[in-house]
Amino acid sequence: MSPAGGLRQLDVSIKGKSYRSASGGAIEVLRELAFTLKAGTVGALVGPSGCGKTTLLRIITGLDSDYTGSVHLPDHGKLGMVFQEPRLLPWRTVEQNVRLGAPEATDADLDALFDALGLAAHRRHFPGELSLGQARRVALARAFAVKPDLLVLDEPFVSLDAALAKHLQDELAVLVTSRRITTLIVTHSIDEAIGLADRVFLLSASPAHVIAEVPIARPREPRTAEELAKIHREIARVLGKLSK
């Protein structure tokens, strides 16, 4: 089944997805949304609020099977997910939360992860004793500890201060690069997408589909302001061409 020499990629091909509204009608959220993500690369989904990004992630992670189309996960299909909210078990400590999500992680794995994410001092704390930023880092640690075949992140850095968001973004970049995990990240921020992804997928407003794919040269490497501006111009050009 796998393409020669490599691991299977993430294949998403959704014909349609609708929700029933309370009044009985159907609201179409996704239509003809398709993309593939090569094994070991990072894809960023960027789109307006409410366009259906979380809905799409729920379909990919198997939480919602009420759609038409198909989704093929990378080999083995082991998932690591960071939800839009931390979703930790409040009655278990930080360390227990990570271990319950990733029972196969070794002590050495956890030590390394907690160090990288600045959580070493909080291992025995309960989620109620953490700040939101710390809780988000625990959610990241849990998703990484799984050693997933597909890592899925739903706006993991939203509502954090800029410095912390940048720091976590760098940590994520390091982890993803060193382990070559196939990763799909949803974000509002084009800068964040450019900073992390091999490929940026631009989504339309609802019903959402992929309007353009922008490959990023030298992903996750430092860029000058000029290079950044060039990528921004490229994205604006793609979007502009489409709107004509």
Partner: peptide
């Protein structure tokens, strides 16, 4: 329901769900 979904995505076993997700909520 959100914790239930989390348990599902992380493929937690029935036992783990019972002991660490369900019972603490019912406590």
């Amino acid at each position: 329901r959100e914790l239930d979904e989390m348990a599902h995505v992380f493929r937690m076993s029935r036992w783990v769900r019972l002991r660490h997700v369900l019972i603490p909520q019912l406590a």
